[in-house]
Design a protein around this nucleic acid. Structure first.
Length: 549
DNA sequence: GCTCAAATAT
DNA sequence: TATATTTGAG
C-alpha cells in the first residue's frame, strides 16, 4: 500500500500507527527491532522469510506503510527480488555488514535507505519520513496534484509551527508539532535520512513551492547520525548517479540553507543555471544581510529570517571554476571575471573569491612541495612558486610514455574531480604527490567498501599495530618490513620517499606485478581517461575482478 | 573590487 | 580536530 498525501493529511497522530513490515531472519534481531518500533507506537509485523513477507504484502488485508528489511551476503539475492517485488513500499534495508556493493544494489533497486545494525531507536524513530516522501513523490512523478498536496500539507505544518513560534518562540530548537514531528529534540535525533519534500517541489523563501522541471538528478543532503550524506532519491537509477557525468551540461550548485540553530532542518537546494532563479535567502544579498541574519535573535522563526546560503562546491561546480580560471590564466583570474565565465546563477563574487583563495592557497602551499619532488628538472627560479600546467597522472604514465596518449596533454592537479562524499576533503592529500586530485577522496579517509582507484594510491593497513598484517617484502617490489627500516615496529607506514620510489619503479616496469600496498587504477578509470583523450581502441584490459564484499 | 585572515559552520 | 566556507577589514 502506498500512503497517499491525502492519507497523511487525515492521519491525526502520525506517525503513530505506522504499519511496518519487518523482515529479518535473525529472530533475536527481529524481536529487538520490533520492540523498539512498538515503543514508538508503530504497528509491526515481523516476517522471517521473503516469501512470508511478500505474501503479506500481496494480501489485501495487510497493508504496510514502510518495510524494514535485513540483508546479508547470504540472502542478498532474495532481498533484491523482494525489493523488486515491493517497489511501491518504501523499504529500508538493514545489515550487519557494511558491503558497498550490496548497499548500492539495494539503493539502486529502490531501497530508500540502508542502515547498518545495530539499529538504535533514534535510527528507527524517523522511518516515517520515507512514508511522507513516498506519498508526495509517488513513482518519482510529482503531478500537479501531488504538489498541491505537498503545499497544503507543508502549509498546514508551517501554520501550526508559526503558531508555536508565537507562543513559544523556540520552534527551531524543539519542533512541537506533535502531528508531524516526533517529540524529540531535532538536534538530538537527526533523521537517519530525511527526504526533505523537495523532489517534487522545493521550498521557496516566501513559503511557496516551485516545480522542479529538470530531469537532472536530485540529490539531497541529509543528516545521518550527525554525518551529512548526499542521497539520491530518484528510485531506480541511484547507482548511476553516484558519479558526476562530465558530459552533463547542467552544473548544479547546491546551496545549503540552514535555519538558525536547527541543524536537522537544514536543506540543500539545487540550483540549476538558466532554469532556476536563485531562491535561497536572496543569495546575492547574503553578505549584506549576514550580520542581521547571524544575529541569534533573528535566527529562528518566521520566514525570511533564514541564514545565509552556503555554496556547496560540487565537483561540477568546481570544474566550472577551474575551467574559468584556466581560461583566464591563473595569474589573471580574478573573482569577478571567473564569475562571469562560470555563468552560474546564484553564485556571488564572494563565493568565487573565497574559493579562489583556497585554490591559490592550495597551489602555493601544497603543490610546490609535491611537484618539486616529482618534477625537479622543471624547477625554475623565475617562476612563481607553483607550476600551473604541470602534468599529473590521471592514468598510468607509461601509457603516455609509450605515446598512447598525446604527451602534451596534462591535467592540473586541481582538476575535475568526479565526486566526493560530503565530508571528504576536496583538495587531495598533500602527503602523496603522485596522487591525482581526481578521486583523492576515495582513500584520503577510510571509507569501508570503497577501494582506491587511483594509480599508485597507497593502500595501507590501518595505522594500528598489528605487525602481521603489514605487507611483507615481495621481491624487489615489496615494501620493506618496518624492522628493516627502523626501529618503530609500530610505525607501519613507509616514508614518502619509499613510496615514491616504489611507485616510480612500478611505473617504469609496468609488466611486473604491483607491490603489495599499491593498487592499479581501475580499468574503468583508465578507459574513461583514454576515452576523454579520444582514444577509443585499447587492448583488452586484464580484468581483475572487482573487490568482493 | 581584490586579498587575506578571522570567524563560523560542518 | 580538521576542513570548508563566509565574513569583514584593509
Amino acid at each position: 500500500m502506498v500512503c497517499t498525501a491525502n492519507d497523511l493529511l487525515e492521519w491525526k497522530d502520525f506517525p503513530k500507527g505506522l504499519r511496518v513490515l519487518l523482515l529479518d531472519e535473525d529472530r533475536d534481531s527481529a524481536s529487538e527491532i520490533k520492540l523498539k518500533l512498538e515503543e514508538m507506537e508503530y504497528i509491526v509485523s515481523a516476517f522471517f522469510s521473503e516469501h512470508e513477507a511478500l505474501s503479506a504484502i500481496l494480501n489485501k488485508n495487510e497493508s504496510f506503510h514502510v518495510a524494514v528489511v535485513e540483508v546479508s551476503i547470504q540472502n542478498s539475492d532474495g532481498r533484491y527480488k523482494f525489493l523488486e517485488a515491493s517497489k511501491d513500499l518504501p523499504t529500508i534495508m538493514t545489515s550487519k555488514e557494511q558491503c558497498l556493493s550490496t548497499m548500492m544494489k539495494c539503493i539502486a533497486l529502490g531501497a530508500v535507505e540502508f542502515l547498518i545494525k545495530p539499529l538504535s531507536k533514534e535510527k528507527l524513530r524517523n522511518i516515517w519520513q520515507h512514508v511522507v516522501h513516498k506519498a508526495f513523490n509517488a513513482g518519482g512523478s510529482a503531478t500537479s496534484e501531488s504538489l498541491k498536496s505537498v503545499k497544503e500539507f507543508v502549509g498546514s505544518v508551517l501554520e501550526i509551527q508559526l503558531k508555536n513560534i508565537a507562543t513559544q518562540n523556540k520552534v527551531c530548537e524543539e519542533p512541537k508539532h506533535a502531528e508531524m514531528v516526533p517529540n524529540d529534540n531535532c538536534d538530538k535525533f537527526p533523521a537517519p535520512s530525511t527526504p526533505q519534500l523537495k523532489q517534487g517541489g522545493r521550498f521557496l523563501d516566501d513559503g511557496d513551492f516551485q516545480d522542479r522541471t529538470s530531469g537532472s538528478p536530485v540529490k539531497e543532503s541529509v543528516d545521518v547520525d550527525g554525518e551529512t550524506k548526499s542521497v539520491d532519491t530518484t528510485h531506480g537509477n541511484s547507482a548511476t548517479q553516484m558519479e558526476v557525468d562530465p558530459t552533463q551540461p547542467t552544473v548544479e550548485i547546491a546551496i545549503k540553507e540552514e535555519d538558525g540553530g536547527c541543524e536537522s532542518s537544514k536543506c540543500v537546494v539545487d540550483l540549476l543555471p538558466k532554469h532556476y532563479e536563485v531562491n535561497t535567502v536572496n543569495p546575492g544579498a547574503n553578505t549584506k544581510n549576514s550580520k542581521k541574519e547571524s544575529d541569534p535573535q533573528n535566527m529562528c522563526g518566521a520566514k525570511g529570517n533564514r541564514k545565509k546560503a552556503k555554496v556547496d562546491w560540487t565537483p561540477d561546480l568546481h570544474k566550472k571554476f577551474v575551467q574559468a580560471v584556466e581560461q583566464l590564466g591563473v595569474d589573471q583570474a580574478i573573482p569577478s571575471r571567473i564569475l562571469e565565465l562560470m555563468k552560474v546563477e546564484g553564485l556571488t563574487r564572494h563565493n568565487v573569491a573565497s574559493h579562489l583563495q583556497k585554490y591559490r592557497m592550495h597551489r602555493r602551499h601544497i603543490l610546490p612541495k609535491a611537484e618539486e619532488r616529482r618534477w625537479p628538472h622543471l624547477r625554475d627560479s623565475t617562476q612563481r612558486s607553483y607550476y600551473p600546467y604541470k602534468p599529473v597522472m590521471a592514468f598510468p604514465s607509461y601509457l603516455a610514455a609509450n605515446h598512447t596518449i598525446a604527451p602534451g596533454q596534462a591535467y592540473p592537479v586541481w582538476g575535475q574531480q568526479t565526486g566526493r562524499p560530503p565530508g571528504f576533503p576536496m583538495w587531495g592529500s598533500p602527503g602523496y604527490p603522485w596522487q591525482p586530485a581526481i578521486e583523492t577522496w576515495h582513500w584520503n579517509k577510510p571509507y569501508p567498501g570503497i577501494h582506491a582507484d587511483a594509480w599508485g594510491c597507497p593502500v595501507l593497513p590501518p595505522p594500528a599495530c598489528p605487525p602481521s598484517t603489514f605487507p611483507q617484502v615481495q621481491g624487489a617490489h615489496g615494501f620493506h618490513s618496518p624492522d628493516s627500516y627502523g626501529n618503530n615496529s609500530c610505525d607501519l607506514h613507509p616514508g614518502e620517499e619509499v613510496i615514491d620510489k616504489l611507485v616510480k619503479e612500478a611505473i617504469s616496469k609496468p609488466w611486473l606485478p604491483l607491490p603489495i600496498g599499491l593498487k592499479p587504477p581501475s580499468t574503468d578509470s583508465v578507459l574513461a581517461e583514454l576515452s576523454r583523450q579520444g582514444i577509443s581502441t585499447v587492448p583488452p584490459p586484464q580484468i581483475n575482478g572487482p573487490q568482493q564484499c
